[in-house]
Computed example of a mutant assay.
Amino acid sequence: MQPISWIALALVHLMPALAFFRPATLTALYGIRADNPLFMLMHHRAALFLAVFVACLWAAWRPEARQLAGIVTAISMLGFLWLYWRAGAPPALRTIALVDLIGLPFLTFALWGAFRPS
């Protein structure tokens, strides 16, 4: 059951990770055009999502990677949700927040599995 949670968490991060390879996705996901100075920063952010995606896939098959992957994934998801809430829940980011909220039960189960005493 743990691998399923990790794969679900990887899927949460798949679309923003793909933006690293297809930067036009940044415009579709976030409404930022290539001529915007923030575009490069968002492209770099996609590389970080790629790292979270890979960490989750790694954790699906390698239990020794689960604690670090869990921490990184929790920082990504909970950090965004906290910032989203603090910003007044901007409607333009609602879908992203909903995807992260849907992923929270998977994150909880993955963290429980990663940190439970043996």
Results as ranks from 00 to 15, higher is better:
M1P: 13
M1Y: 12
Q2K: 12
W6A: 10
W6C: 01
W6Y: 09
I7F: 09
I7L: 07
L9T: 00
L11F: 15
L11P: 08
H13R: 12
M15I: 11
M15L: 13
L18A: 14
F20Y: 15
A24V: 12
A24Y: 15
A24I: 11
T25V: 15
L26H: 05
L26I: 15
T27V: 10
T27S: 05
T27L: 09
A28G: 00
G31T: 13
G31A: 07
R33Y: 02
R33N: 11
A34H: 06
A34Y: 00
D35Y: 00
N36V: 04
P37L: 09
P37V: 10
L38T: 07
M40Q: 04
L41H: 07
H43P: 03
H43L: 15
H44G: 07
A46V: 13
A46G: 12
A47V: 04
A47R: 07
A47S: 13
L48K: 01
F49K: 08
L50Y: 02
L50S: 09
L50V: 03
A51Y: 06
V52G: 03
C56A: 06
C56N: 05
L57P: 10
L57Q: 04
W58V: 06
A59N: 02
A59G: 02
A60G: 06
W61C: 09
W61R: 14
R62D: 09
A65S: 08
A65Y: 06
A65G: 14
R66S: 02
R66C: 02
R66W: 07
Q67M: 06
L68S: 02
L68V: 14
A69D: 09
G70V: 02
G70T: 08
I71S: 01
I71A: 11
I71T: 08
V72M: 09
T73E: 05
A74V: 03
I75V: 15
I75H: 08
I75Y: 13
L78F: 02
L78C: 12
G79C: 01
G79H: 02
F80T: 06
L81R: 12
W82S: 11
R86H: 02
A87G: 07
A87S: 15
A89N: 14
A89E: 15
L93D: 13
L93V: 01
R94Q: 13
R94H: 04
T95K: 05
T95S: 07
I96A: 12
A97K: 13
L98I: 07
V99R: 00
I102W: 11
I102L: 14
G103P: 05
L104T: 10
L104G: 04
T108P: 00
T108I: 07
T108A: 05
F109T: 01
A110S: 10
L111P: 08
W112S: 02
A114F: 04
A114Q: 01
F115Y: 06
F115Q: 00
R116A: 08
P117L: 10
S118V: 13
